[in-house]
Computed example of a mutant assay.
Amino acid sequence: MTDPVSHRQVLAHDPLAVLRRVPAIGNLILGIRADGALLEGLGAIESVELEDGFAVLRGPARETRFELAAIATLVTDQMVMTNVLPFIEIFDADGNTIAKLTALDGLERFDAALEGIARTPVDAAPPAARPGPGDAPDDAPLKAAETAGSPVTLQAVKRGVVHRWTGTLTSVSFSHGFLNAMQDDMHLHIRAGAIASWSKESVDGSDVFSAIDSNGKALGLTLTAEAGSLTA
Rank of each mutant, 00 (worst) to 15 (best):
I29Q: 14
D184V: 13
I195L: 08
V75W: 03
A113V: 00
L74R: 06
R65M: 11
A99W: 00
I117W: 07
M79Y: 13
G160V: 03
A34W: 01
I117D: 13
E115W: 00
I90E: 05
L85D: 03
V48Q: 06
A194N: 03
W165E: 05
L230D: 02
L154H: 07
D123A: 15
V157C: 11
T170W: 05
R20Y: 00
E63W: 02
H163N: 08
T97V: 15
S47T: 10
S173H: 10
R21M: 08
E115I: 02
G106P: 10
V172Y: 07
L223V: 11
V10L: 11
T231D: 14
G59W: 03
P23D: 04
G216Q: 06
E108C: 13
S202A: 13
T102L: 09
K200T: 07
D52H: 12
A61H: 14
G41F: 07
H163C: 07
D77F: 00
F110N: 08
G106N: 10
L104K: 13
A128Q: 13
D138T: 07
S202R: 15
G26Y: 03
W198E: 10
N83F: 15
P15V: 02
A70K: 12
F178C: 04
D123S: 11
L16S: 09
A156V: 00
H187G: 10
E115R: 09
W165D: 04
K143C: 11
Q183K: 08
T168R: 14
T170K: 12
L223T: 01
F66R: 01
H189A: 13
A124I: 01
F87K: 06
R20F: 02
N180Q: 09
Q9A: 14
P127S: 04
S199F: 02
L74Y: 02
R33K: 12
E49S: 12
S171W: 05
I45F: 06
D207E: 09
D213P: 14
F66N: 03
V208N: 08
I195N: 05
R109T: 04
L179W: 07
T231W: 06
G59Y: 05
G193I: 04
V56N: 09
H7A: 12
F174T: 01
E51C: 07
K217D: 14
N180F: 05
G193T: 03
V84E: 10
T64R: 10
R8N: 08
I195Q: 10
V157A: 13
R119P: 06
T82N: 15
S150M: 12
R33I: 02
G205W: 03
P141W: 05
G132N: 03
A69S: 15
L154S: 06
E226K: 15
K100W: 04
R21Y: 07
I71A: 06
A227Q: 11
D3M: 08
A156E: 02
S197P: 09
P141T: 05
E49F: 06
T76P: 11
D185F: 09
P141F: 01
A112R: 14
P86R: 02
L19A: 00
E67C: 06
A192P: 00
R20P: 09
G167N: 10
T168Y: 05
